[in-house]
Design a protein around this nucleic acid. Structure first.
Length: 681
DNA sequence: TCAATCCGTATC
DNA sequence: ATACGGATTGAC
């Protein structure tokens, strides 16, 4: 069987034969490309060198997409630079393919992405995924034209918007600085009922006039629509572009390219726009930075405000952190001297704010009207609503639907927590006893650890129903509902009851005659460390839609007037509250006073990470503690690490190193690391 | 003493 | 996933 053996030998030889030694012609200049590759492993978060064949010399530009062979697989990557020689000792492999010569990644965005990855203990490629939308080849071939509907700005609208800034101390100076090419940084608290979109468009116009670019990020789509309209009027047509994730791949890429190719220098949008490649960046803006929509849900979970602050720092551009409310982070930026406070003059606040009535629990006198009484509406709220409805629409802010309120102690109002696991206690469905929302144990023999009380109070139970039934108390008035997936942008000036969940309040033409904020306790009962700040933010955002007190505008809020949040609303002093909040976080050791990271995942993986972690000496490590996870999942745990702000970079580096070690060791289970998480339950 | 094989590690 | 180097093993 010699023949058979020969055949086997032939086959073996063919299989083993190394690939035919192809002749390789290197690019005539800078024959090495430094590439960031799409691999999820933390220890591979660095650049890799590839040889550039002569055939790719022209197309392989810094910032372009490539395919490369990496660890035996084809992966995507971006070329960050072309260099003459490699530091790498071993053999270099040629680039597989230049996907397109479009330099989608600008040097500025690449730099800032690195800063963001470092700040959040994440990988560069994860941040680049947020910065560069997926490619759409056909769009790339299109001739990029300036966005449509060109036309000059509306001179009157421009003058009006610029005049708005006069109501703020240093407001006009801020605008002037932008126009002359300076880079002021400010935390702006807007006046009630402010035309914020007009103000921001005016700031954008001033920056564009200095020859520089602008990025403005707002929480949601309704805000984008408003701002888009203001920009059309104030910048004129074709000078800005809207960039959001919901656009669809082709349109999103088209607008992204319009910015990258410097056809347009002002990009507005939701958080997908935060890293838009605007040329010669002069101003970044984050509107309503307390809104949790600004917290990116994908790794490494960066926050829009922080991304923009890093961009402003890197590009030496101006920055505006703005809202009706102010976050503790905003106050921190002011306190550290990074930004100036840009607030309204006190007289302007007095002239513009609605009158606010706080209805404390002790002075809840129920309405006499039988229907209002049945739904436990305070007399004051009922009277204000009745009077206002003669004059215009009335806004009723109710908690998000489907929310089951947490319980509190009837006597001291301490949050009721499960004796076994410290989870929040909730009322079950009708006539079910109270039980833990986390572990499900019924809270039969509960006693308040604070005061020994044994009875619960259910804060503002069913205030959504309250609001709906309110309609019956005013049978002649139409009721409109906004919330969930049916969000109204605007309502008319005619009398109506407008029931909305926080964040879904429609703007009323001519302003609301009154607003009832009925969910105070519920908001304050949230386990989150941000509960107070978030409550005030929602109140201010709703109250900002009401007419000034001088025009009869009134707000009723259910909450003790002694509470700082209530005070802050009554006096309309968001800055004061934010400073207070910051001081409290300082005392409690929470961000932004300290840098804090959570590490969550399967218990074993978290334990391993904790062991590998070499945090700076100043660090305090809490846990790991078990946390509730979905049914049947393996046990989950959370570790918390915090350091003084000054050691934040060291903490992030240590977190990254620990993850790198685990990924290099092919350790089982992934942990989720979040630096300064927006919410901490 | 040397080759075949195993294992851990880096991944250009 | 795959390729490489160093260590280990086993045959001479």
């Amino acid at each position: 069987m010699a023949e058979h053996g020969e055949q086997l030998e032939l086959i073996r030889r063919r299989v083993r034969r190394p690939p035919a030694p192809r002749t390789f012609t290197p690019a005539p200049e800078l024959p090495i490309a430094r590439v960031v590759v799409d691999v999820p492993l933390a220890h591979l978060d660095r650049l890799f060198d590839y040889r550039v064949p002569a055939s790719m010399h022209e197309s392989c530009v810094p910032g372009c997409r490539v395919r490369v062979r990496f660890a035996g697989q084809e992966v995507d990557g971006f070329v960050l630079e072309r260099v003459a020689r490699s530091e790498h000792g071993g053999r270099l492999v040629p680039l597989r393919r230049v996907v397109s010569a479009e330099p989608v990644l600008s040097p500025e965005v690449a730099r800032v992405a690195r800063l963001i990855a470092d700040r959040y203990a994440g990988t560069l490629y994860d941040v680049l995924r947020l910065a560069v939308p997926p490619r759409h080849a056909r769009v790339e071939d299109e001739e990029t034209v300036a966005p449509a509907n060109a036309g000059g700005p509306d001179a009157r609208a421009v003058a009006e918007a610029e005049a708005r800034w006069q109501e703020y101390e240093a407001g006009t100076a801020f605008l002037a600085a932008l126009r002359r090419g300076d880079s002021p940084r400010a935390v702006w608290t807007a006046l009630p009922a402010e035309d914020w979109s007009g103000c921001l468009a005016a700031a954008a116009a001033a920056t564009l006039a200095s020859g520089r670019g602008v990025v403005i990020v707002v929480p949601d789509h309704r805000d984008v629509t408003r701002l888009d309209r203001a920009c059309r009027r104030i910048l004129g047509g074709g000078r800005h572009v809207v960039l959001t994730a919901e656009l669809g791949p082709a349109e999103r890429y088209r607008r992204f390219l319009a910015a990258r190719r410097d056809r347009v220098r002002c990009v507005i949008g939701t958080r997908a726009a935060a890293l838009a490649p605007v040329a010669d960046l002069g101003l970044v803006v984050c509107w309503d930075d307390g809104d949790d929509l600004h917290a990116e849900p994908r790794a490494p979970y960066p926050h829009v405000r922080e991304m923009l602050a890093l961009r402003a720092h890197d590009a030496r551009s101006a920055a505006l952190i703005a809202g009706y409310a102010c976050t503790a982070e905003g106050a921190q930026l002011v306190e550290s001297g990074w930004a100036r406070r840009l607030g309204p003059a006190r007289e302007a606040v007095r002239a513009r704010a609605p009158r606010v009535f706080a209805v404390g629990d002790s002075d809840v006198e129920l309405a006499r009207d039988p229907v209002a009484r049945a739904v436990r509406l305070p007399h004051r709220a009922f009277e204000v609503a009745r009077a206002a409805l003669a004059d215009g629409p009335v806004l009723v802010q109710v908690p998000r639907g489907g929310y089951v309120p947490a319980l509190a102690c009837q006597d001291c109002r301490e949050r009721a927590r499960c004796a076994a696991c410290s989870g929040p206690l909730q009322l079950g469905s009708a006539r079910q006893p109270a039980a833990c929302a986390w572990c499900g144990r019924p809270a039969t023999a509960w006693r308040c650890p604070q005061c020994g009380g044994a009875r619960f109070r259910a804060p503002v139970i069913g205030s959504r129903r309250t609001a709906e039934e309110l309609g019956r108390a005013f049978p002649t008035v139409p009721v409109r509902v906004s919330g969930g997936d049916r969000v109204l942008a605007e309502v008319g000036p005619k009398p109506a009851l407008v029931i909305a969940t926080p964040g879904a309040e429609p703007v009323a033409e001519g302003g609301y005659a009154a607003a009832l904020l009925l969910d105070g306790w519920l908001l304050l009962m949230r386990a989150d460390l941000r509960a107070g700040e978030e409550t005030l933010r929602r109140w201010l955002n709703a109250a900002a839609l009401v007419r000034p007190g001088s025009a009869g505008g009134a707000v009723v809020v259910t909450g003790e007037s002694a509470l700082p949040v209530v005070q802050a609303l009554v006096r309309w002093s968001p800055g004061w509250y934010a400073e207070r909040e910051l001081a409290e976080r300082q005392a409690a050791g929470f961000p932004p006073a300290v840098r804090l990271a959570t590490i969550e995942g399967p218990s074993e993986a978290v334990r391993e990470t904790a062991e590998l972690l070499e945090p700076p000496p100043s660090a305090e490590v809490l846990g790991p503690v078990p946390i509730p996870s979905g049914e049947g999942d393996e046990e989950t745990a959370r570790l918390i690490v915090r350091t003084p702000r000054g050691d934040g970079a060291a903490l992030a580096a240590a977190l990254k190193a620990a993850q790198a070690r685990r990924s290099a060791d092919k350790a089982a289970g992934t942990v989720r690391v979040r630096v300064d998480p927006h919410a901490l339950g």
